[in-house]
Design a protein around this nucleic acid. Structure first.
Lengths: 126, 126
DNA sequence: CCACTATCTGAGCAAACGTTCAGGTAAGGG
DNA sequence: CCCTTACCTGAACGTTTGCTCAGATAGTGG
């Protein structure tokens, strides 16, 4: 009669181990935040450009192909997450990377991209 | 009379350099794809758990706190991007990481998280 | 075979996202 | 001073996202 209501673990040891090794909630929030910052083409282009040199809003708009307003919105997003920092120079504001780890993240992601392209010669995403 | 219609670069050299160093469109697509996979809390929890050991859908649902259906949907997403791979074992299917770079990405992101928390002792995101 | 288990799939929906538009602020030059 | 330049901001919008629900599929054991 009494049917199972709570789903049981199939491999309780694995679940226990995973729970023990799980990332703290707060850390996960921050980690997901960085990946989120890098998960949009415009933001990725901005950050990748800033990998090489500081740039102002106007020039970033040219590079990314969106409006200056859009760039400004995204820069605020990136500033809030401490990924870029502004530096005033007269009338213009030059943005630069606030964390050198961004470069490393791109490098690792590129390795992964190679891994994918290697698995499927004619690349899998349309 | 003839007013400027096309926005001019403020620092043409920087724009030119950034253009020259820009990531190829196709590569950017793949790179953004990985970050996108890692930018959702549920997917991040799944991948982080799989960092330690292979797991089945049911147990991942327990770990992540969402339904088995939701996990299955996300696993399809991750499978499409070659981030995880399934291995049948009788009736259950165990998923494992398909790319060891995922671990490295988490590590770099954690470094960044430390960078943020260091900058602002009482952590900045609510 | 038939019931059960583990996983998958498609539709539907509320929430979040990225962009543009229009207007606002702050520093610089005539 | 006032106008221009560079950047910021809020509202509105169409799109995308991640979830749940209901039902389908595939392997297992009696």
């Amino acid at each position: 009669m009494a049917q199972r209501v709570v789903p049981e673990a199939i491999d309780p040891e694995a679940v226990e181990a995973a729970r023990a090794a799980a990332m703290p909630e707060e850390m996960l929030h921050l980690v997901v935040g960085v990946f989120d910052a890098l998960s949009d083409p415009t933001r990725a282009r901005i950050l990748y450009a800033l990998t090489g040199r500081p740039m102002c809003v106007r020039d970033l708009a040219i590079i990314t192909g969106v409006s200056e307003s859009a760039v400004s919105h995204q820069l605020r997003f990136l500033r809030d997450r401490r990924l870029v920092k502004p530096a005033r120079d007269g009338n213009i504001i030059r943005y630069s990377l606030d964390d050198h780890h961004v470069g490393a993240l791109f490098r690792e992601a590129e390795y992964h991209a190679d891994h994918v392209r290697q698995a499927i010669p004619d690349h899998p995403y349309s």
